[in-house]
Design a binder for these strands. Structure first.
Length: 819
DNA sequence: GACCTGCTGCGGTATG
């Protein structure tokens, strides 16, 4: 390419074949996706800049104006946007002489905003949300009329969620305005790259997938506990491994210690400091509830290499490339192979260097998981990311955005929306429903003017009739919904972070709690802010946040079953399996090891009642569905009530009275077990769980994305109670007066697909039918069962209705009274 | 042989 080769040569940089492949395709006007297996954001910024230079040199067709926005670079994070901007304007400035390059995100300075309002730069780095906001401006089409190219960084992070769907809709709009638009995505490795590309480019497009050629070397290993046979059978904190972890940190310059939860990170940080007081100031804590200022300080320390270790959650998964990071430790299960690779990639972040992640088990079965993960990484058996299918809440938001951004006619926008992959099968009826919903508020809200958000003029162009509605809408653009949080501040002023309302509500004045790596004393709460001061001495509670409960992935679960199959054949590979061997031996002796060919079921009679344990290894959400389903189906055959406990490996049903399990599981293979049938699965699942309550919780999020609920002005947030009250009001009104409301349907579908993983549940039932049943009556809890019993004490899920419980107590009283 | 599980990401009004 003219000039560009020289530019690279002058710096002694090699031009790789995959770079040239992208350049050539893009210059020929093709879109596509780069499967990026290595390289920092900076590298990509530079060689995309080289591409832009080449494009700029091409003569432009029918575009008279010389200046204006030509390239849009989307990133999922503001921090990434800032880094990309820096890379483009520092390292690549001389590639793009005369270009203005700028970023625009929610925290862009007002000076930058004013500058951009006068004239947009040639290249703009921004987020999907900010792009949607730009689409809501009346002159949007004019602003984007010179656009040649869009680059979407870290597309794998967006494609699987509603943020990605919002990006799809925005891209459909940009493509419609600029038919020759070239779109390139950058994606990490995943199981469905082809789908990732379709989602990015639209159902009709055929793009090119370019393989980033440098295959990164990745090492996964495990810290083996000193005395594996005395390692706990249950638990998740893993503080027994403190010594070995400290020793690892000691041996390396900079280490990231990933934890699965924020409270776990707090506890690990505190324990590390207690063990090594001399590390004060050298180690730090980083998670999503800490104040931005604190997090910025930690990130800077990592970049400069002044920190020895950072204990963090997935808040450091993405983004900023911290070159000095030498070691990555993962405390507890990684839950999935993609996540593990992502975290490994935080170390050795330079071409030619090895990325290494070390697993730190918190209980015995995580040694098995570690062995499985290592095998799956070797096989590159990486999870897919499913793309959401026509979420109508996002569409409804988009309709108002477009009505503000110049207006639309029904037929034209319907056509455009269907070029977004997620809406490729949107029916005319669904379209009409969505349009009606923003035009009249659907069937039940017609009398409220604030829900008549768009109005057609005589020409049939839909616009937003009222400035106040437009303002409110712009304030609510985006698809990320979070619970209301309480700010935590020192009485003297400094911000520390945010905790959940419910946690603060349980505290009394003078109580201590651990947060942000310090022991704090709670003073008072005022207007969604909790005031605290530093406390001395006793530790006190650790805040809990109501986070998502990610299940172990199918890929990892299958690999774990496979490891056990090998173990039953006497094949023990690697130190992990050797260490977990004693536990597996006990399990095999007292009962059996589950394998891909065999379902292990155990029953046990204890003082608590009659237990049934089963280990399908299908992840916790499937196990919730499966446990509820089996107890419901069992209850239909004969009256019975059960308490349920689940983890990623299996579930427990506990009944107060004896249940004839041997009869149920006598068949020898799963296909003889009536409880495992997939017939009537949907109906039974809906009936067995409290589906309405689950849908209602889901609906909260949908109602906020669809713009039904105003979340308050910045700086004056509404409390959860206020937000929930209005969402349940809408839920009830729709159920009573507007049963055909498609947002209700969507809430139920999201519960089934995402929370209960219905597809995976069905696949699990089919697998169970194909497997042999290995049924054991045991005298005491096996190692696998023990973990479930512990789980039950923590979290009491019960299918027992109050009336049933009363009836049972009565029966017991009668029995006790005797004849 | 009884536990301190539950992530991340963005965006914004109107001024006295």
């Amino acid at each position: 390419m003219t000039g560009v080769d020289d530019w690279f040569a002058a710096r002694g940089w090699t031009v790789f074949p995959f770079q040239r492949a992208v350049w050539e395709a893009a210059l020929a006007g093709e879109s596509g996706m780069l499967h990026a297996t290595t390289g920092s954001g900076k590298t990509y910024a530079v060689w995309f800049a080289a591409l832009l230079r080449a494009m700029a040199a091409q003569p432009r067709k029918d575009k008279r104006k010389a200046a204006g926005l030509r390239v849009l670079w989307l990133t999922p994070m503001r921090a990434l946007a800032a880094d990309t901007l820096r890379a483009l304007s520092d390292s690549a400035a001389d590639l793009l002489p005369g270009w203005t390059i700028d970023a625009r995100t929610g925290d862009t300075s007002s000076a930058a905003r004013a500058r951009q309002a006068r004239r947009l730069p040639e290249a703009l780095v921004t987020t999907p949300e900010s792009l949607s906001l730009m689409l809501s401006k009346a002159d949007a089409q004019e602003q984007f009329s010179l656009l040649d190219m869009v680059i979407v960084d870290e597309w794998h992070e967006l494609m699987g969620n509603k943020r990605g769907v919002q990006a799809q809709l925005a891209l459909a709009r940009l493509r419609n305005w600029n038919p020759g638009l070239v779109v390139w995505g950058l994606s990490a490795t995943l199981g469905n790259l082809q789908r990732a590309q379709e989602a990015l480019l639209g159902p009709a497009a055929h793009g090119t997938i370019v393989e980033g050629s440098l295959r990164k070397e990745i090492v996964v290993d495990t810290l083996i506990p000193a005395n594996p046979s005395r390692f706990p059978w249950a638990g998740h904190l893993g503080i027994q491994m403190l010594g070995p972890v400290i020793a690892e940190i000691e041996r390396h310059a900079t280490t990231l210690v990933f934890c699965n939860t924020r409270s776990q990170a707090e506890l690990w940080y505190q324990n590390m400091l207690e063990a090594r007081p001399d590390w004060a100031g050298l180690i730090a804590l980083h998670h999503g509830s800490l104040d931005k200022e604190v997090r910025d300080w930690v990130e800077l320390g990592l970049k400069r290499g002044t920190l020895k270790a950072v204990v963090c959650t997935s808040s450091l998964d993405l983004g900023v490339d911290f070159l000095p990071v030498e070691r990555v430790l993962q405390i507890g299960s990684a839950k999935g192979i993609a996540r593990l690779l992502q975290r490994a990639g935080r170390s050795g972040h330079a071409p030619g260097r090895v990325s290494r992640v070390t697993l730190v088990p918190t209980q015995s079965l995580e040694l098995l998981e570690a062995a499985a993960a290592i095998q799956a990484v070797q096989d590159r058996d990486i999870e897919s990311r499913p793309v959401p299918d026509k979420p109508l809440d996002v569409l409804v938001q988009h309709l108002v955005t477009v009505a503000l951004g110049g207006g639309f006619t029904s037929a034209a926008l319907y056509g455009e929306v269907r070029t977004a992959w997620s809406y490729r099968e949107l029916t005319p009826e669904e379209w009409q429903w969505a349009l009606d919903f923003v035009a009249r508020g659907g069937q039940s809200l017609t009398v409220y003017p604030e829900y008549r958000r768009v109005l057609p003029d005589e020409a049939g162009v839909y616009r937003v009739p009222d400035a106040a509605i437009g303002r409110r809408h712009r304030m609510g653009i985006g698809t990320i919904v979070s619970e209301a949080m309480i700010q935590v501040k020192f009485q003297s002023g400094g911000r520390i972070g945010t905790v959940e309302e419910g946690f603060i509500a349980r505290l009394n004045k003078g109580d201590h709690f651990l947060f942000g790596g310090r022991v704090l004393e709670f003073l008072r709460v005022h207007e969604m802010t909790a005031y605290v001061k530093r406390a001395t001495g006793a530790r006190g509670a650790v805040p809990r946040w109501q986070g998502g409960k990610m299940p172990m992935s199918s890929e990892l679960a299958h690999a774990a079953l496979e490891q056990m199959r090998l173990a039953t054949e006497g094949i023990v590979r690697g130190p992990e399996m050797a260490a977990v061997r004693p536990l597996l031996d006990i399990q095999a002796r007292w009962s059996a090891l589950p394998t891909p060919q065999r379902t292990v079921i155990e029953s046990l009679h204890s003082r608590e009642g009659h237990h049934l344990f089963m280990y399908p290894f299908a992840g916790r959400s499937v196990h919730i569905g499966l446990a509820s389903l089996l107890s419901w189906r069992m209850g239909r055959m004969r009256p019975a009530t059960f308490s349920i406990a689940v983890n990623d490996y299996g579930f427990e049903l506990l009944a107060p009275e004896e249940v004839p399990w041997p009869d149920v599981f006598a068949a020898g293979t799963g296909s003889g077990v009536a409880l495992f049938t997939t017939e009537g699965l949907l109906e039974d699942v809906l009936a067995s769980l409290n589906a309405t309550e689950l849908s209602q919780r889901r609906f909260r999020e949908i109602a906020r994305i669809a713009g039904l609920i105003f979340q308050g002005y910045p700086g004056q947030p509404k409390s959860n109670r206020q937000l929930q009250a209005s969402s349940s009001l809408f839920f009830e009104v729709f159920r009573k007066h507007d049963a055909g409301n498609l947002l209700l349907t969507q809430a139920q579908r999201e519960v089934l697909e995402q929370e209960l993983e219905l597809k995976r549940l069905r696949a699990t039932l089919e697998a169970l039918q194909a497997r042999a049943v290995s049924y054991h009556e045991t005298k005491r809890a096996t190692p696998f069962g023990f973990a479930l019993m512990v789980e039950r004490f923590r979290e009491k899920l019960s299918t027992e209705k109050l009336s049933d419980r009363v009836a049972r107590v009565l029966r017991e009283l009668e029995k006790a009274a005797g004849p």
